[in-house]
Lab assay of single mutants.
Amino acid sequence: MQRVNMIMAESPGLITICLLGYLLSAECTVFLDHENANKILNRPKRYNSGKLEEFVQGNLERECMEEKCSFEEAREVFENTERTTEFWKQYVDGDQCESNPCLNGGSCKDDINSYECWCPFGFEGKNCELDVTCNIKNGRCEQFCKNSADNKVVCSCTEGYRLAENQKSCEPAVPFPCGRVSVSQTSKLTRAETVFPDVDYVNSTEAETILDNITQSTQSFNDFTRVVGGEDAKPGQFPWQVVLNGKVDAFCGGSIVNEKWIVTAAHCVETGVKITVVAGEHNIEETEHTEQKRNVIRIIPHHNYNAAINKYNHDIALLELDEPLVLNSYVTPICIADKEYTNIFLKFGSGYVSGWGRVFHKGRSALVLQYLRVPLVDRATCLRSTKFTIYNNMFCAGFHEGGRDSCQGDSGGPHVTEVEGTSFLTGIISWGEECAMKGKYGIYTKVSRYVNWIKEKTKLT
């Protein structure tokens, strides 16, 4: 034993070699072989497995989906700052455009905790909710729209109204504003409101030439003092309507412009014939205590009207009353817009006519005020429907199939267009061939041609 100890002390290297040989010859039971080890760690190889990531292109799944990435790591994937920024906006807080917040056709661009709407022409605001041009839906104005110097929408209202708090709607500024039905039992019968379409306001006024200088022999019209197929109006439903009495009662109609003036057809009036105007009328054979009678003290036909040349060209006249009318729910003026808007309103496509005229061709006159909704007829169809001249200051309205029309005794009465609950004068009943005849239409004086003249002559002093 002493000898062994001496050998170990003198030859430590020998001992180490012996131990190493023993270990190498022993069977290893701690580690699995290569094949079995792979069965336990069965993990798919990654895209760049075996390579240094710093030297390969980034992978979106590896960089940002398996674990949260930084902007720089995302930049490695896209290799483009702009594309990385677009991805980053949604990656950080989701897609803010998912709810489609942009209105009126706006395009949404996502941002971090926010979004941006790219608005089409005519709109602005956070969600493109603000109209900035009158060309689109009248700028959301209830009545009139004008573009300011910086191309912003400025709404306005006709006389007797003021802008509401929203700067879009119009509200009454006087007790009985024009064009409004205020009798409670008839307010439910107000005709369907007309909503502004998209309009090209630059070209809204037709490029028409008034044929002022045409000389033409007097034409022989049949029954051209021209509501057939209409309905009984309720008291106060058309408070701007008046009836004219002269040699015979209810020979023509008219509309209240203001307390002192009536507008009617020029062919209705004769110099030297006494005319009485009755406002607030409903049943011409009954006294309903809503009527107001006034005498006409002055007749002003349009300066281009000449019955000797043509009885229905420039067929418009103004009547001055001896005493002002007292405005109330049964006696209310009709609204008159400017030339541009009167023309736009007419193009809405349908209007209402009213009167006490004959209820059928050569038949009896109506006792109760009649009204009828009539569609506008395109000019080409209008011209083809008659052998008589249709001037540019006239328009056609009615039904091709016949059966409904204005008729004798309705002449001078109103053709009105309702705009968001307020009625505007767009025409004056003038003439036609018979009444409600198939293929024939009622012919009306186009008020847009005469609004400046009306307003100039009827100013209240």
Rank of each mutant, 00 (worst) to 15 (best):
Phe121Met: 11
Asp232Gln: 08
Tyr22Phe: 12
Asn151Ile: 05
Ala233Glu: 07
Met437Gln: 09
Leu327Lys: 03
Ala164His: 11
Arg404Ile: 12
Ile316Tyr: 01
Asp111Phe: 13
Thr29Glu: 09
Glu286Asn: 10
His400Arg: 13
Glu98Val: 06
Leu244Phe: 05
Arg294Phe: 01
Val228Arg: 08
Asn295Gly: 05
Lys247Ser: 13
Trp88Tyr: 14
Gly21Glu: 02
Phe121Val: 13
Lys68Phe: 09
Asn48Phe: 04
Gly58Gln: 03
Val257Thr: 01
His34Met: 09
Ile112Cys: 14
Cys108Asn: 02
Asn306Pro: 02
Trp431Asn: 05
Lys68Ile: 05
Cys102Gly: 02
Gly402Ala: 14
Thr29Met: 12
Ala207Thr: 09
Gly398Leu: 05
Gln57Cys: 06
Asp111Ile: 14
Gly442Trp: 04
Asn393Cys: 04
Cys435Asn: 06
Cys108Ile: 04
Cys28Ser: 12
Leu19Ile: 11
Asn343Thr: 14
His314Gly: 04
Arg75Pro: 06
Val353Arg: 15
Cys178Gly: 00
Leu211Cys: 12
Pro301Met: 10
Tyr352Lys: 01
Asn38Lys: 07
Asp111Arg: 10
Lys68Val: 12
Tyr91Met: 14
Cys157Gln: 00
Gly363His: 13
Ala37Leu: 10
Leu41Lys: 11
Ser411Asn: 12
Pro301Tyr: 12
Asp110Val: 05
Leu163Ser: 03
Met6Lys: 15
Arg46Gly: 10
Thr215Ile: 07
Arg379Asp: 15
Gly50Gln: 13
Ala37Asp: 15
Tyr352Asn: 13
Asn213Gln: 10
Ser187Pro: 11
Lys339Trp: 08
Ile136Met: 14
Ala149Val: 09
Arg358Trp: 10
Thr422Gln: 03
Ile299Pro: 02
Leu372Pro: 06
Phe424Ala: 01
Asn38Glu: 13
Val228Phe: 06
Pro44Gly: 08
Asn295Val: 06
Gly413Leu: 15
Tyr161Ser: 01
Glu165Ile: 08
Lys51Gln: 15
Val331His: 00
Ile210Cys: 15
Leu52Ala: 11
Asn151Pro: 05
Arg226Leu: 06
Ala149Pro: 07
Glu82Trp: 05
Trp356Asn: 04
Phe78Leu: 11
Leu321Ala: 00
Glu165Gly: 11
Cys117Lys: 03
Lys347Gly: 09
Ser430Tyr: 03
Thr290Asn: 12
Asn36Glu: 08
Leu41Met: 12
Val447Trp: 00
Thr426Lys: 00
Leu367Ala: 11
Pro120Glu: 04
Phe238Tyr: 04
Ile429Phe: 13
Asn38Asp: 13
Asp198Trp: 12
Ser448Ile: 00
Asn203Tyr: 08
Asn100Glu: 06
Gln241Lys: 06
Trp261Ile: 01
Val56Asp: 04
His282Ile: 05
Lys109Thr: 13
Cys97Phe: 02
Arg379His: 15
Phe395Thr: 02
Phe55Val: 14
Gly409Ser: 13
Glu231Asn: 11
Val326Phe: 08
Gly253Asp: 05
Asp111Cys: 15
His282Tyr: 08
Glu86Ala: 15
Ile214His: 07
Gln90Asn: 13
Met6Ala: 14
Gly355Leu: 06
Ile136Trp: 03
Ser70Gln: 15
Gly229Asn: 06
Tyr391Val: 07
Phe87Thr: 15
Phe238Ala: 08
Gly355Arg: 13
Ser406Met: 13
Ile390Trp: 05
Tyr47Glu: 10
Ile15His: 02
Glu76Leu: 14
Tyr391Ser: 14
Thr194Asn: 08
Ser11Trp: 05
Gly246Phe: 06
Glu116Lys: 13
Phe221Cys: 13
Glu401Thr: 13
Gly58Leu: 09
Ser329Phe: 07
Leu19Cys: 06
Tyr305Pro: 02
Thr445Ser: 06
Ile15Leu: 09
Tyr201Lys: 08
Lys126Gln: 07
Glu66Gly: 12
Ser169His: 03
Tyr391Arg: 10
Phe251Ile: 08
Glu61Met: 08
Phe348Gln: 11
Asn48Leu: 11
Thr290Ala: 07
Ile15Lys: 04
Asp200Gly: 07
Arg449Ser: 15
Val278Met: 06
Thr426Ala: 01
Tyr441Asn: 03
Ile136Ala: 13
Pro239Asp: 00
Glu281His: 10
Ile336Thr: 02
Arg75Ser: 03
Glu79Ala: 12
Thr215Gly: 07
Thr290Glu: 04
Asp249Tyr: 04
Gly398Trp: 03
Leu103Phe: 03
Asn313Ile: 08
Glu61Trp: 07
Asp405Glu: 15
Trp261Leu: 01
His302Ala: 03
Val416Asn: 03
Asp405Trp: 08
Phe348Tyr: 12
Lys455Ser: 06
Lys39His: 11
Glu35Lys: 06
Val242Asp: 01
Trp240Gly: 00
Leu319Cys: 11
His303Lys: 07
Ser406Leu: 14
Tyr391Asn: 10
